[in-house]
């Protein structure tokens, strides 16, 4: 019997001079994972952008619990979106969405 996949939720904040759309953030993170770990690594990450608030520039990413460090390194390596300098900071990591929102007080 296969076990259910354990997930991790990462709350992040985008620091940029201009607002960045949800699609651009998702593309940037996916491209960073692909650049650093390739298609094999990206397939193991089980990555998904759960939420993104463009006005407040924060969001939540879900990934496999085995790939947290991988996703974190990839997120840290994002330095530009649409040729504009950007930094993405991981605020908190949690096992459930509810706990993550409570911890970050979103």
């Amino acid at each position: 019997m296969s076990r259910r996949m354990r997930k991790r939720y990462l709350a992040f904040k985008v620091v940029s001079e201009q607002p960045v759309s949800k699609g651009d953030v998702a593309d940037a993170v996916w491209n960073a994972v692909l650049r650093l770990f390739g298609e094999y690594g990206a397939s193991q990450a089980n990555l998904a952008l759960i939420e993104y608030d463009q006005e407040k520039s924060w969001g939540i990413i879900r990934c496999s619990h085995r790939a947290v460090e991988m996703v974190r390194a990839s997120i840290a390596s994002v330095t530009e979106i649409n040729e504009k300098p950007v930094a993405i900071h991981v605020l908190r990591v949690s096992g459930t969405l509810k706990a993550l929102k409570r911890k970050v007080s979103l």
Binding site: V15, L36, E69, M70, R72, A73, I75, A76, S77, T79, P85, V86, A87, H89, V90
Partner: peptide, 18 residues
């Protein structure tokens, strides 16, 4: 050299795994 290149300590720790 600027704010866009600063990351948190745990992010750096994740990058060092590379």
């Amino acid at each position: 050299t600027n704010t866009h290149l600063i990351r948190g300590p745990y992010d750096y720790a994740a990058v060092t795994a590379l």
